[in-house]
Amino acid sequence: MDYLTLIQLLDSTVRLATPLLLACLAGLFSERAGIFDIGLEGKMLAAAFFSAAVAALSGNVWVGLLAGIGASMVLSAVHGLASITFRGNQLISGVAINFLAAGMTVLIAQDWFRQGGRTPSLSGGARFDSITLPGADAIADTPFIGPLYAELISGHSILVYMALAAVPLTWWLLFRTRFGLRLRAVGENPAAVDTAGVSVVALRYAAVAICGLLCGIAGAYLSTALQAGFVKDMSAGRGFIALAALIFSKWRPWHALYACLLFGLFGALETRPDVIEAVTTLKVNSALLGALPYVMTVIILAGFIGKAIPPRAGGEPYVKER
C-alpha cells in the first residue's frame, strides 16, 4: 500500500466517521442525562430526508439543514414527552421513533416528489461543497506534507469541521460548566439534583433537545454532503453504530471521537477489499468486516476489555414523590 492510498483511506475514514461522531455525541448528551436513546437512527433518517427535500425545493442547503434539525428535534420532543413527561419506557419509545422515521420519510418523499421514496439529486447551492483550506493548492505538490494537507485535512464539507469542533465543545460543556455538571448529575442521581432545587425535567428536556440538534446535523450530512440526495433507509444502521461507539467510548467525548474514527476506518476498509488483501494477504469478507463494530461492542459490554458502566439513572423515569 503506497502513501497516497493510505491518505485516500484515511480521507474516507473521516468522511464516514463524521455522521457517526455527530450521532454519538447526540447520544452522549441524552444518555448522560439519564435518557436512553435508541432512536438516534430514526432521528438521523428523518433529518436526512427533510434536509435533502427542503434543500431541493429551496435550492439552499442551509435552509435544508435547518429543516433537518427541525425534523430531528420534533422526534426528540416525542421521545421527551414519552420518556420524561409520561414516564414511559425509553427503549420502546426509541423503537417507535425509528419506525416512524423509516415509514414517514418514504411516505412523504413519495407524496412530494413521486420518485419511489427518494428526493431529486442535489447540486450547486443545494449541497454542502467541500472547502479548500487556504494554501492547500499551493503545497499539494510538496512531498509527504502536501497530500496530507490537501487531501486529508483540506477538502471536506463544513459539517465535517463542525463535527470535529463539537468534540472539544461537548467536553467543555459537560465537564467545565455548571450546566454540564447538572446534566451529568441528573443522569447519575436525579433526586440529588431535585433536592438542590434544580428542575430534573427541564435539564432532561434540554439534553434531549441537544441530542435532536446533533442528530439533525448528522442526518443532513448524510443526504446533502456525503451523498447528493435522500434515498430510502439511507441511515443504514449508522445510528446503531453510533450507539455502539458511545458504549465503546464509555460515554466520554474524546473517546467517542476515537471510537467513531475506528468504526469509520472499518467502513472505509469495507469499500476497499483490495487494500486489506494487499496488507494482510488475507481475503476478508466485507460483510463480516461490517459486523466488526457490533462484535467489538458486545465484547466491551461483556466487560472483557474494561467495563462499560452507563450513567446510573439511565433508562429510569424520575418520579418526585417516593
Binding site: 414511559g88 420502546i92 421513533i97 419506525f99 416512524l100 423509516a102 415509514g103 418514504v106 411516505l107 421514496g117
Partner: peptide, 23 residues
C-alpha cells in the same frame, strides 16, 4: 400511490401509543 411504508408508520404509532405513551 400509497407506499407500503404506511404499514411501518401504523406499526410505529401502535408501538408509540400502546408502549411508550401508555401513561
Amino acid at each position: 400511490s400509497i407506499p407500503r411504508e404506511l404499514i411501518v408508520v401504523i406499526q410505529a404509532l401502535v408501538i408509540l401509543f400502546t408502549g411508550a405513551l401508555d401513561n
